[in-house]
């Protein structure tokens, strides 16, 4: 056996200290504010627009959560790639399946 011990470096060396308390609190407050908004939307009658508005709020919340709490902003390229891949493949799943439901009633001839 040689002197070289091949150590698996699974987790990237993370030299960045974790988020400050102030930063975390701010993130939390933003998220809580957005949650209040989602609730408000839930209790009002916006008709068909409601689902879009509430989903938009949820997306903003999701982005804040992943970028700040899950620390994606300090992630390396690979982490970003992974996150984008997840979204992209979910998009593919939706794209074709929902296309089916939207076009099924059209007949070609």
């Amino acid at each position: 056996m040689s002197d070289h011990v091949q150590k698996p470096i699974i987790f990237e060396e993370d030299h960045l200290p974790p988020a400050t308390i102030g930063g975390s609190t701010l993130t939390f407050l933003i998220l809580a504010g957005l949650a209040c908004m989602a609730t408000l939307i839930g209790f009002t009658d916006l008709g068909p627009a409601k689902v879009w508005v509430s989903l938009a709020v949820a997306c903003v919340q999701g982005i804040v959560l992943t970028v700040f709490f899950m620390d994606l902003r300090h992630g390396d390229k690979l982490t970003w790639l992974t996150a984008v891949a997840a979204l992209f493949w979910t998009f593919l799943l939706f794209l074709f399946t929902i296309t089916d439901y939207l076009t099924r009633q059209f007949f070609a001839f």
């Binding site: 296309t99 089916d100 099924r104 059209f106 070609a108």
Partner: peptide, 21 residues
């Protein structure tokens, strides 16, 4: 990942989607 619908051409999925697949 883009071709799964070719298993379902005759199952009643949308005909246009079938063409795309």
């Amino acid at each position: 990942f883009l071709v799964w619908g070719h298993h379902m051409f005759l199952s009643g999925q949308g005909i246009y989607l079938g063409m795309v697949f």
